[in-house]
Write a protein that binds this DNA or RNA. Structure first.
Lengths: 205, 205
DNA sequence: TGGCTTTTGGTACGAACGTACCACAAATGA
DNA sequence: TCATTTGTGGTACGTTCGTACCAAAAGCCA
């Protein structure tokens, strides 16, 4: 199908196909879960033949890695959008961001299963683990940027931020997991309120 | 290989084989992870032929379910043992139990991977989800039994216990996950200290 | 012992898997 | 136009999977 000028055009063509396939893999992950993903299913979802996967990817590990990288990117973009909302009170902005991760868009079984599957898959692939850590780091940095104004330049409070972040990040993951487990909005609400109470105690107390 | 008196003896024989196979499946889950478990591997681990699995179990789902049930039982027994330690101060007893879940025995990649795999597998099997919820409920009830003396019969504090449990359970799961992610003992320690701070604020403040 | 039921070891089957491979189509540069 | 590269569709191979199936062994009771 034709030569391309070296590098640029070639990679654009290939990149398009790679992206189509990775997007299809993402949809399969969301619809059927990691356990039921297969090369044939991804190809069918993309409307392409099986050959495209071998042609554009080193293997299914490569496809999975790209798909999860793409999912992470989408989640990060969604977080970025939440960050742009304005509020005069920093603590309200912080809480709004915290709660954004638990609105109806994110509190969806199919989306959360993708995350949980990623936790599990990361145990068997250092590459996926790296992707998952990058997602964690990004979200944590956003939380930190919203938390820092709350410390009010008090060195003692600033010093407490890392420990607070360790805890809140853990609680967030746990609340997502718990929602899949119990589908109980009250538990999520309780967790968020307790998280805010902890933040206020440590940083505003 | 012989008749048994109906019911009792039969089930004891069968139960032994079932148990052997389930234990072998547990070892495979701990050594290789859910993704690399197969009927042949379990049979080899048990030192039995493939026929025993079909003879004693309805299918691999059945084996998995029994294996995870067994794992849950072991975890619960370990928790029960921690509960039996004595301390004059209820808050210290509570903290000791909280920390017991993060001592060197539990903070092990292979054991934690089993938990994470279970979270993932539970998304695809209501039976496994039920097993996982039962494990959650048991641990939660133990936490509650240790938390109740801290409320000191204050109705307001007692009313806050469920929300506190929702939060702490989530944080615990999140800290286990985070240890697999970062292998950072400091983060775990920070999470535990913040958890205790929250408990003290709500119940002892 | 003879006649059963239960247990065991092993094989075989059909399905699904990843992916290697190939013939052909399409596009491009000379 | 033609040679070459790149993209495409599809097939086929080798593996592994769960599990059905079966013959032989082993235990038990009459």
């Amino acid at each position: 199908m034709g030569q391309q000028s070296p590098g640029q055009e070639l990679s654009r063509f290939k990149q398009n196909r790679r992206s189509e396939i990775a997007q299809a893999a993402r949809r399969v992950l969301e619809r059927d879960g990691y356990a039921h993903l297969s090369a044939r299913k991804v190809a069918a979802e993309a409307g392409l033949s099986l050959g495209h996967i071998t042609y554009n990817f080193a293997g299914m590990d490569d496809v999975l890695s790209e798909a999860y990288r793409l999912i992470s990117e989408r989640l990060r973009n969604a977080s970025d959008r939440c960050l742009q909302q304005v509020d005069d009170q920093p603590v309200r902005k912080f809480e709004a961001f915290l709660r954004a991760g638990f609105d109806d868009e994110f509190l969806d079984f199919r989306h959360l299963r993708v995350r949980i599957d990623l936790w599990s898959a990361a145990c068997n692939s250092e590459k996926l683990a790296e992707t998952e850590r990058a997602l964690y780091d990004h979200y944590r940095q956003m939380l930190e940027s919203l938390m820092r104004p709350l410390a009010d330049n008090d060195p003692a409070k600033i010093a407490a931020i890392p420990a607070l972040l360790d805890t809140i990040m853990a609680t967030q993951d746990g609340l997502w997991l718990d929602w899949v487990r119990h589908r109980n909005h009250d538990a999520v609400e309780n967790g968020l309120q307790m998280t805010m109470k902890l933040v206020r105690t440590v940083l505003l107390g």
